[in-house]
Design a protein around this nucleic acid. Structure first.
Lengths: 260, 260
DNA sequence: AAAATTATTTCAAAATCATGACATGTGTAT
DNA sequence: ATACACATGTCATGATTTTGAAATAATTTT
């Protein structure tokens, strides 16, 4: 979204620089079941000088990828037949190809990263075409630059997938939450809300942001849905629901997690 | 256009937070030749606290957009004089503004996407107002996010979202104010007034400006409302309300925050 | 002193939130 | 297939807080 004008012109120039320097066009496999999305992606990637192939579901994706060996894969997670997560894992197991994940929700992305499927990058909807193209290029460059250190760095940044906040311990890998030492059972939605808040403790998050990041860009339900989910979380983690100490309301704004 | 009423209720609630947190209202250019549509869009966007400008054909759209530099453009594709596609392409060439395409049919969208133009998002008629507003907000947020992260790489760049002014510490993320080390509890309105003043300490701000920037353009209430809010703030932050040391009156003009 | 401006108090309306109840959908075990 | 538990979203209601306006008091300016 940054620099619309600049990049329209840019893209023409870079076309030559980036692509003509490699004799042959890089091939990108676009995997999405929404034809519209595929169309945008394909159109814009071709404009940038890439060759594209398409797949509309997970099964196809795996088959085509193995057959055509693309230089990069753009992969939506919401897919028919075999979901994107599985596709990603399987492809990573057999092919050494950068995979760029498309997703409507931040939380979905987290899940993927948490599961260590080996995705190389991700981008959440709505994304600008510009942004996408930039990521594609970046990832292709990365491969080129480090054809030697194939698997070196990834394991290096093994972050603690546990967030600790006072009485609260959130294990992102296990999808498990402990309060005061007790494992409590949250539903997926509840967990995601809590996790999102926990990533930035103290920071007040509006309901709208939560809806977008947790429920997803495509969700247009009642904003008060957030309140209800919060209440359900509180029922499980707060000693006294009527005086929350952990998940706190900022009246007129939204919710936040008390830090420490 | 189902759901016009639904969002009328909606808008009452979140009115403030998202918009007034940027102390000026975002401007949205609505481009459509059907007056009815424009009216509905404008009405609802204003309800949400956006400023709106209108254009009824493609020619006008381009002219106005270049002149007024809106923060976002809602663009119908079916337009007299210059069609939406062209408008989009041209605008993208000169302005860096998110464009949200309105279209009657899915197929139309398909066609559009097959074409160039870096539209940022699209929405097909009929759409719910809630959906539209959500998309508008999402796209505006996107812009904001990308202007903050200079290179878009990591969110790790910790902008201190904290304003310090002598005894006063305002944490913008937490919507929290400390006075002499003590966290005090301000209402949203109070917080916003204080924040606005704090962004330009020493600078005297008239009540009119405060009303406009904090209450919003559409607010036509009593100007003395500002006084009352100021008093409420003082009660919470001043040691001696009758001799304010922090939030000070400039008689005949307005108020300002003492500098250091 | 009169006029103008600001401070303070009070009150009712409006906004916001928590909660319970209900509806729907989904998966699972019988 | 049927029944059941569970997850999740929606809605209505009541409680609480916030807010604007009006009325009055206090202060400053002219």
């Amino acid at each position: 979204m940054e620099g619309a004008n600049e990049s329209i012109e840019n893209s023409k120039e870079q076309e030559n620089v980036e692509n003509s320097s490699n004799e042959f066009k890089k091939t990108i496999l676009v995997v999405d079941d929404e034809k519209r999305i595929v169309d945008i992606l394909v159109y814009n990637l071709q404009k940038e000088g890439y060759q594209t192939i398409e797949a509309n579901d997970g099964e196809e994706a795996i088959r085509i990828a193995n057959e055509k060996k693309p230089d990069l894969i753009l992969l939506d997670i919401m897919l028919p037949k075999i979901d994107g997560l599985t596709v990603c894992k399987r492809l990573k197991a057999t092919l050494n190809v950068p995979i760029l994940i498309l997703s409507a929700k931040d939380e979905e992305i987290d899940k993927i990263l948490g599961l260590e499927l080996g995705a190389d990058d991700y981008i959440t909807k709505p994304f600008s075409v510009r942004e996408l193209v930039a990521r594609v290029k970046a990832n292709l460059r990365k491969v080129e630059a480090s054809t030697l250190n194939v698997e070196g760095e990834q394991d290096a940044n093994k972050e603690t997938n546990v967030i600790e906040l006072g009485d609260l311990v959130i294990n992102l890998d296990k999808f498990e939450v402990k309060v005061r030492g007790q494992v409590i059972d949250l539903t997926l939605r509840e967990f995601e809300v809590l996790r999102y808040l926990a990533k930035q403790p103290g920071q007040v998050v509006t309901r709208e942001i939560l809806l977008e990041k947790v429920w997803g860009y495509e969700y247009y339900g009642d904003i008060r849905t957030v309140d209800v989910t919060v209440r359900r979380i509180r029922e499980k983690i707060e000693k006294d629901t009527s005086a929350p100490k952990i998940l706190i309301t900022k009246r007129g704004v939204g919710y936040y997690l008390a830090n420490v």
